[in-house]
Design a protein around this nucleic acid. Structure first.
Lengths: 259, 259
DNA sequence: ACATCGAGCTTGTACCAACAAGTCGACCAG
DNA sequence: CTGGTCGACTTGTTGGTACAAGCTCGATGT
């Protein structure tokens, strides 16, 4: 091409130029970028090349795209606000109190629940110390906050638990919360093992959480143990752009102004 | 098109098919996928469509691509192995024993350390309870395991700590580890506050960690507290495809066979 | 024996074209 | 005024082509 020494591919140059303009406030948060065809004209590149560049920006979380509308510069405000909310929402000592916590925070919770019998997937079976493919109860929860998809949560209970806690198989909610119900049924959880990983969402996850391409998810796998054995395993898929996990280790609460 | 009821786009169907085959061991970890042109013939799709599908798998971390070679199924061994390693590496009571732990595991550690005086960035200042822009010591560490970039770690120490622990400002390593050095200097950490988030890497991070497009990073921010106040804040950027964070909550260690 | 080159494979970049699908607003009929 | 249609715009998907760039390996020549 004409430029001469162009070390970088054109789509990366395009992305860099737009990134700079976004940083400099030419396109402030919430603003709409020029359309693909406009950018195509401006940079002298084909629409495909423009799309490649824009895909980079989307994957960095700088912009989002919506079919029929265009590309919007993301605002970071939302990110921080919801992050701290999440904290209150899930961690204060074995809450299971998603609904009440969200309500108390002045926001509107909404969830759909699906209960199935499922053979244990290998990774779950390992954590529950049961045989892969053995009978488990899967309670699958899709949660919203103010109509924004928040997380999907799949909790597996080993089959042997059903004798002691039969209501887990019933389709509806358990009013007092599953943790409390389990405790009442003589199955108390005395410890948790948490694993946190990240990856890009599968198309299915992207659909459920309504996240654009390029936003990673946070995978939170919590295995709850009674005094004798693991009693449940929860795999939560969280929007990476809206959530942050917090852990306190040691005697932080007892300290003076520490946090 | 002719197929009739194809709810999903073709490239997603293709990705789903390959994902299933990878899960089922048709393409075991380390194996090479058929080339784009072969897949194109097999699925009756154009090379563009095939590439779109493969890009999904890459972004999910299932496969990697290298120009001139092809697409390789990623081995989960590395992932899992390093995950548990990571655990030992950082968590068992204030290790700071990265070097020794990695060596004991039969792997070769390598790190570069940079020590600077830096005004505190706003987010760090907030966590350290000092004024933004006030003097801090930044110890920046770039770590490798077996020559694979592993993480970057930026630890900030508040300026007031320098009177009691002057060696923190010296450029070289601290042989006994910074945690032990701090304890010896009368600054014992009795609690930590951990925050874990995820996002796509900046170009700079992608360069340092040598991660391809589509792989997110795990951000681990640990604030260490003495009995009176925060004494340091460590921001670790980990390759999301090689790392997993594990936390034990409650009395897991005391249990019988519970993990 | 050994370095060098090149054919033939791979993925990466770039271009073009066409249609599907989603959104919005202008317009028109009731 | 209300409600629906339709057209003009947007991004999403799929098809094609060509060449660049990176890797492997065998043939070639010294």
């Amino acid at each position: 091409m004409m430029g001469g020494m162009s070390e970088q591919p054109k789509y990366q140059q395009l992305a860099a130029a737009l990134r700079r303009e976004i940083d400099n406030g030419v396109y402030p948060p919430g603003a709409r970028l020029p359309s693909e065809s406009e950018l195509s004209a401006r940079f002298g590149a084909s629409r495909n090349t423009v799309r490649n560049g824009l895909k980079l920006l989307v994957s960095e979380g700088l912009v989002t795209s919506s079919q029929g509308l265009g590309y919007d510069v993301r605002s970071h405000e939302v990110f921080e606000l919801n992050a701290s909310r999440f904290e209150n929402l899930t961690f204060p000592q074995n809450g299971d109190s998603y609904t009440t916590d969200v309500t108390n925070a002045g926001r509107r919770p909404h969830q759909t629940l699906r209960v199935e019998m499922r053979p244990a997937p290998p990774d779950i079976a390992e954590r529950l110390k049961v045989e892969a493919g053995s009978k488990t109860v899967l309670r699958f929860c899709h949660r919203y906050v103010d109509d924004v998809p928040w997380s999907t949560q799949a909790t597996y209970y080993p089959g042997w638990l059903m004798e002691r806690a039969p209501r887990l198989t019933e389709p509806g909610d358990i009013a007092e919360g599953t943790t409390r119900y389990l405790t009442g049924a003589g199955v108390e959880q005395v410890g948790y093992f948490d694993e946190i990983a990240t990856r890009m969402p599968t198309p299915e996850e992207a659909r459920l959480l309504e996240i654009g391409a390029g936003v990673p998810v946070l995978l939170w796998t919590r295995t709850g143990h009674s005094r004798d054995e693991p009693v449940r395993c929860t795999v939560t898929t969280l929007r990476g752009d809206l959530n942050r996990m917090n852990y306190e280790i040691g005697d932080l609460a007892a300290l003076g102004g520490a946090e």
